[in-house]
Amino acid sequence: MSVVTLTVSDDEADIRLDRWFRRHYPHLTQGALQKLCRTGQVRVDGRRATAATRLAPGQAVRVPPIPNASRPPPLAVKPLDARQVREINQMVVYRDDHVIVLNKPAGIAVQGGPGITHHIDALLDGLRDSPDDPRPRLVHRIDRDTSGLLLVARTPGVAAKLAAAFRGRDVHKVYWAVVVGRPSPATGIIDQPLTKLGAGAGAISVVAERGDADAVHALSEYEVLDAAGRKLSWLALSPLTGRTHQLRVHCEALGNPILGDPKYGGDIAHVTGFTDKLHLHARRLEIPHPAGGTLMVEADLPPHMRETFRQIGFVAPATAQPRRS
Rank of each mutant, 00 (worst) to 15 (best):
P156R: 01
P156A: 05
A159L: 01
L162C: 02
L162G: 02
A164W: 00
R167C: 02
G168K: 14
R169I: 06
R169Y: 11
D170R: 15
V171P: 10
H172I: 09
V174D: 11
V174R: 13
A177S: 06
V178T: 12
V179G: 03
G181W: 12
R182N: 12
P183D: 03
P185H: 08
A186L: 13
G188H: 03
I189Q: 07
Q192M: 11
Q192N: 11
L194E: 13
T195I: 06
G198H: 14
A199F: 15
A199T: 15
A201S: 10
A201Q: 14
G202Q: 13
S205D: 04
V207C: 06
R210F: 12
R210W: 15
D212E: 15
A213T: 15
A215Q: 09
A215G: 07
E221K: 04
E221R: 11
L225M: 10
A228R: 10
A228P: 03
A228G: 06
G229Q: 07
S233W: 03
S233T: 05
A236G: 01
G242T: 14
T244V: 12
T244A: 11
T244M: 15
H245N: 14
R248Y: 14
R248G: 05
R248P: 03
E252R: 04
A253W: 08
A253K: 03
P257F: 14
I258F: 08
I258S: 02
G260C: 07
D261P: 02
P262V: 08
G265N: 04
G265I: 01
I268C: 01
A269G: 01
A269C: 02
T275P: 08
D276W: 12
K277A: 06
L278A: 04
L278D: 09
L278N: 04
H279L: 04
H279K: 05
L280Q: 06
R283H: 09
I287G: 06
P288W: 07
P288Y: 07
P288G: 09
H289M: 06
